[in-house]
Simulated scan of single mutants.
Amino acid sequence: MLHIVNKSPFENTTLASCLRVVCKGGGGALLLIEDGVYAATKNSVAGNAVHDVMGDIQVYALWPDVEARGIQDRVLEGVKMVDYGGFVDLVVEHSNVQSWL
Score class of each variant (00 low, 15 high):
residue 1 M to Y: 08
residue 11 E to H: 11
residue 24 K to S: 06
residue 99 S to D: 04
residue 67 E to G: 07
residue 80 K to P: 01
residue 1 M to H: 10
residue 58 Q to I: 02
residue 30 L to H: 04
residue 39 A to Q: 06
residue 77 E to W: 12
residue 36 G to D: 06
residue 2 L to W: 15
residue 88 V to S: 10
residue 1 M to D: 13
residue 95 S to V: 06
residue 85 G to M: 00
residue 50 V to G: 05
residue 47 G to E: 11
residue 48 N to F: 05
residue 2 L to R: 15
residue 34 E to M: 07
residue 17 S to Y: 02
residue 15 L to W: 11
residue 101 L to I: 02
residue 65 D to R: 04
residue 40 A to Q: 07
residue 70 G to H: 11
residue 83 D to K: 12
residue 4 I to P: 10
residue 16 A to E: 09
residue 83 D to P: 08
residue 63 W to H: 10
residue 20 R to T: 10
residue 25 G to E: 09
residue 3 H to M: 12
residue 52 D to A: 11
residue 12 N to G: 00
residue 9 P to K: 00
residue 6 N to I: 00
residue 74 R to F: 05
residue 9 P to Y: 05
residue 68 A to G: 01
residue 15 L to F: 15
residue 26 G to T: 00
residue 75 V to Y: 12
residue 80 K to M: 11
residue 39 A to S: 09
residue 94 H to D: 03
residue 8 S to Y: 00
residue 31 L to I: 07
residue 64 P to A: 03
residue 17 S to C: 02
residue 26 G to L: 00
residue 26 G to Q: 04
residue 94 H to W: 07
residue 34 E to P: 05
residue 3 H to G: 14
residue 11 E to M: 12
residue 60 Y to A: 08
residue 11 E to V: 06
residue 15 L to A: 08
residue 50 V to I: 08
residue 47 G to L: 07
residue 18 C to V: 03
residue 6 N to Q: 11
residue 60 Y to D: 06
residue 40 A to T: 08
residue 45 V to K: 12
residue 8 S to L: 01
residue 49 A to D: 13
residue 86 G to I: 02
residue 45 V to S: 07
residue 64 P to F: 09
residue 1 M to I: 10
residue 2 L to Q: 15
residue 23 C to W: 03
